[in-house]
Design a protein around this nucleic acid. Structure first.
Length: 445
RNA sequence: GUGGUUGUAGCUCAGUUGGUUAGAGCAUCGGAUUGUGAUUCCGAGGGUCGGGGGUUCGAGUCCCCUCAGCCACCCCA
């Protein structure tokens, strides 16, 4: 019989323990931060009716969408983000849930696009959104969540770039480019990447803008200085446009609120050139870059939208949210060597040393686990040296070793696998001393 | 989807103008060492040379197609 070649589809990946452990850690961190602001978890199906997903119907999403007919002949598709499912979810359930509704959603999405470093066809997004309120408080809170998220993950150098679509729309309004806003903004969004001249070129080519109009838009890129200075320079550019002025004042409020919460100014940077490709943003926009690895792109992006569920309900549902690109962030952390090379989630190793004492090892393990510390007992009574070699290669922190001598003396040997040092710990008065010693080696108090 | 580039053991790579049975280091497993791991020594396993087709007496090597990785565009997390 011929063997089937084991393989995975382009852009789809297996996760080995050393990849999955940090992945789960990151998910746990995101959950913790989201919950600390009162966001509740939800989930939705991976598969949706095609019409739900193609509602916005751009060619690009169509190209990226995994779609097929199910066994009942229904046209279906795999979700390509978590925002569209949220819109459907909100239209269906908001009457029950009430607003404001704050949810987080951590799940895989699928896009059939070409792969690159940190870009896959199946990847995980960690979204959080607040729907049903237009309050600037929600805008501020979104910025704070992003900030806390990266701080808690362990980044000290990251920049949240912030802008407001109203500023851009106000300017385009004044210039008579409002009808071409998608093309103009898409070009503007590339400013950091392809430079001023190329952006102007693209604006004239794809949006039909005149040289002067392009120049006017690109004045945005001349703005420099502190956030307050940029906003001061911005005001005259949009003056006379109601929406533009509102955008500037809204930006001021958001910055003030984030500062009031104690976030240092260097973390938040007004960048009037970020636009986000997605059409549905209407207010504040966020993008998050890692200062040490800006080329990987934005690792957490989002913004405000006026009418999330307009395709599905007549009820107006404004909202704001952002999405952490978990897989892209992990690729970045890997490159920055921020991921510990641990291949075991349990720190304590018990060798199966004396072949007749399995029960004693299991009991010891159970007692340590009872104190909330993970323990692995080796399954075979192999030679101690081999078992320790295994423990070493998996990255265990401590080994609790007991053989005939130790059993006779009611002790165990506690071995610190990092330093190699061993100490004898008595079990005569129960496991508390041992657990305290393990805790101190693991530095968990 | 478009263009470029790469693909030899689990990993990093060598492999002569196309020429016998494709090699090394690391890793794995076993032993030296029946109570102590990251360093030593010995040995073993592991390859459809990414896959398919073609040229040739003969292909890891040349040609075509395909799959996968990386890079750029597009778009975006």
């Amino acid at each position: 019989m011929s063997l089937i070649q084991p393989r995975t589809l382009k852009g789809f990946r297996d996760y080995l323990p050393e990849a999955m452990i940090p992945r789960e850690q990151l998910i746990a961190t995101a959950q913790q931060v989201y919950r600390s602001y009162g966001f509740s978890p939800i989930d939705t199906p991976a598969l949706e009716y095609l019409e739900i997903l193609t509602g916005k119907g751009s060619d690009e999403t169509d190209r990226q969408l995994y779609k097929f007919q199910d066994h009942g002949g229904r046209d279906v598709g795999l979700r390509f983000d978590l925002t569209v499912p949220l819109a459907r979810f909100a239209a269906q359930h908001v009457p029950k849930l009430g607003t404001p509704f704050k949810r987080y959603h951590i799940a895989s999405v699928w896009r059939g696009e070409n792969t690159q470093r940190g870009r896959y066809r199946e990847f995980m997004q960690c979204d959080f959104d607040t729907i049903g309120t237009k309050s600037v408080a929600a805008d501020i809170e979104t910025g704070l969540v992003i900030h806390d998220l990266f701080q808690t993950i362990g980044f000290s150098k990251f920049t949240i770039r912030i802008n407001n679509r109203m500023v851009l729309n106000g300017l385009l309004d004044k210039l008579g480019l409002a009808s071409k806003s998608t093309e103009v903004l898409r070009a503007l969004d590339k400013l950091g990447k392809i430079g001023r001249d190329k952006v102007a070129e693209e604006m004239t080519a794809t949006a039909g803008a005149t040289q002067e109009q392009a120049e006017q838009v690109l004045k945005l890129s001349d703005l420099a200085g502190s956030n307050a200075e940029i906003l001061a320079q911005l005001a005259p550019l949009v003056s006379g446009s109601e929406i533009g002025e509102e955008g500037v004042s809204r930006l001021n409020e958001v910055l003030a609120g984030i500062a009031a919460a104690g976030v240092e100014e260097a973390r938040i940077q007004v960048d009037v050139s970020i636009a986000r490709g997605l059409d549905y943003y209407t207010g504040v926009i966020f993008e998050t870059f890692l200062d040490d690895l800006p080329t990987i792109g934005s690792v957490c992006s989002g913004g405000r939208y006026d009418n999330l569920a307009g395709l599905f309900t007549k009820q107006e549902l404004p909202g704001i949210g952002a999405s952490l690109g978990l897989d892209r962030l992990l690729a970045a952390m890997e490159e920055l060597e921020m991921l510990a090379k641990v291949r075991t989630p349990a720190p304590v190793f018990i060798p199966y040393f004396d072949g007749d004492r399995l029960g004693a090892y299991l009991k010891l393990a159970a007692r340590i686990r009872g104190a909330g510390i993970g323990v692995e007992v080796y399954p075979d009574p192999k030679k101690l040296g081999q078992q320790l070699k295994y423990a070493d290669s998996r990255g265990f922190s401590v080994a609790v070793i007991a053989g005939a001598n130790e059993f006779a003396a009611e002790t165990v040997q506690l071995k610190n696998l990092q330093s190699g040092e061993s100490e004898e710990v008595s079990l005569a008065e129960g496991p508390n001393t041992l657990i305290a010693r393990i805790r101190s080696i693991l530095s968990i108090g």
